[in-house]
Amino acid sequence: MGASDVIFYLLAAMTVTFAVLSVTTRQIFRAAIYLLFTLIGVAGIYFWMQFEFIAAVQIVVYVGGIVVLIIFSILLTQQAGEKMAQPPLKRKLFSALAAICGAALILVQVLNYTFKPTTEEAIATNVKSIGTQLLNIDATGWALPFEVISILLLASMVGCIVIAMREKGNLKI
């Protein structure tokens, strides 16, 4: 086992440990922080695989965006120093079941896939090739999904504005 493997196992252990902690802790803010560490661990694995762009995007979107939003909503709604109530047994069982099903599904897919050994040079994953691939209108390009997703985001933004907009008649706050 080389140093590379050691680094991988460290990152994987960190990711899994914090993932487990984040669902078992009863302090909601700590759960968010453990989730943060899990996501950073995933980003670390991307860095380890030398997909720097994906890793950086993982940090920007999940750590800088989503976790901050989660923490914000905790700050706005929860009281510091309180523990969450113990969830009922039925809910615990069903969530465990759902987690096991999801893991099994992924494992089956991974184990059934045959990874072909190849001697070819690895495809360079620099930003330029990702960009051209993303906005390519060839058969292998991703221009259509990209645009569809941007329409989805636009729709959700319009939805936010509609919800937040005050009607003209009642300006009372």
Binding site: F29, I33, F53, V57, I59, V60, G64, L75, G81
Partner: peptide, 26 residues
């Protein structure tokens, strides 16, 4: 090769420490 993106990504973590300190102080 994504130095600029890396910096803007990692610097967004620094807000977490402030949020954490603010919450944990009670």
């Amino acid at each position: 090769n994504v130095g600029v993106l890396y910096i803007s990504a990692v610097s967004s973590i620094s807000v977490i420490s402030i949020l954490m300190a603010g919450w944990a102080s009670n």
